[in-house]
Design a protein around this nucleic acid. Structure first.
Lengths: 189, 189
DNA sequence: GTCTATACCCTGATAGAC
DNA sequence: GTCTATCAGGGTATAGAC
């Protein structure tokens, strides 16, 4: 692992734990047992670290959404694929997901605009899936925006309930989250 | 309105917009058209402002939960009451809710411990309501932790979809959010 | 109650020796 | 590639005049 990769690995852990603004370059350097100035031989700025972490995750979401869009499945199966994908990436890389969701607003300029564009496109694609499901009567004819909001709110916070102590297990996430999101809570009998 | 109340009112708006750490005392002072030093005649520290905003909201949640606990209703009606209450307070005071959910980790010492204690008790009470609902077969026999997580994730992010432009309306929140959270998305016909 | 002036600390980042 | 030394700027907060 290169020094650069080490820096980003440590930054992921620290940013997730304390937030981007609360972690200083000196903090990162101390953990790596070097001086803060030495970090700048491997990265050009603190923000560059944030950009790399967030945009890598954002691009991954975009790619997966493009795959799901082109599936020839029912709308509910597409929704299920979106949910499964969120769960998978949350289990595999909870730090990146936490940072993407908590600290994206500290991106600047062109990168911020690019991030917002990807995010908007992702939401728009998910909205389309839901709308088609309503049209085909696979999905209850309720407010599409609320369904979108409720789904994304839960999926985007998965990281905060996974990967620490006495939290949800991988099995629980994969088995029960899709059921509850799609089928609801209240018994229909 | 006293100067102190003015300071807290401005702080609520700014903290919600930019985050606690990104708003400086100089920022608050500039908006009030005074110098930063003058703020300290009305408050003792920046953190005191945060504490007042968050603990007021947290105590309010606690009081409401105590009312709901003692209702003689079905578990589903209690859940509905919890959801309605979140929606009401989000509509009435979105700034406080946003700050509570985004910036509670910047509380320190005794106040932080008090906050975490209230939060834990709130979750425990909600967990009990869900468990009783499962026992009485009002609620689907699925993982209680997942139901709790999914519900709280959505309710705690309501503020981010309300109160800016082209977002959810008050009517949409009150009408559709409870339905979707309780009854799910997928058509059961 | 507000001001000016300032103390003190921490931040991201750079220059240049080794 | 890491170091020491340092800079410029921003942060919270205080002292004391008015």
């Amino acid at each position: 692992m290169t020094r650069r990769e080490q820096i980003i690995k440590i930054a992921k852990i620290q940013f997730r734990e304390s937030g981007y603004l609360s972690v200083s370059m000196r903090d990162l350097a101390t953990i790596l047992d070097i001086k803060a100035a030495s970090l700048y031989n491997h990265i050009t700025s603190k923000e560059e670290i944030l950009e790399e972490i967030i945009m890598q995750a954002a691009n991954y979401f975009t790619e997966e959404m493009n795959v799901i869009k082109s599936l020839e499945s029912s709308s509910v199966d597409k929704l299920k694929a979106v949910i499964d994908h969120h769960i998978d990436i949350t289990i595999r890389d909870p730090e990146s997901i936490a940072i993407l969701n908590n600290d994206w607003m500290y991106l600047e300029g062109k990168v911020l605009r690019e991030f917002l564009s990807l995010r908007k496109a992702y939401e728009e694609n998910l909205r389309t899936i839901i709308m088609e499901g309503v049209q085909k009567k696979e999905i209850n004819p309720q407010n599409v925006e609320i369904i979108l909001f409720s789904l994304l709110s839960t999926l985007r916070r998965l990281h905060s309930w996974y990967g620490k102590q006495n939290d949800l297990s991988e099995y629980q996430l994969k088995e029960d989250v899709p059921k509850i999101l799609l089928n609801g809570i209240v018994s229909s009998t």
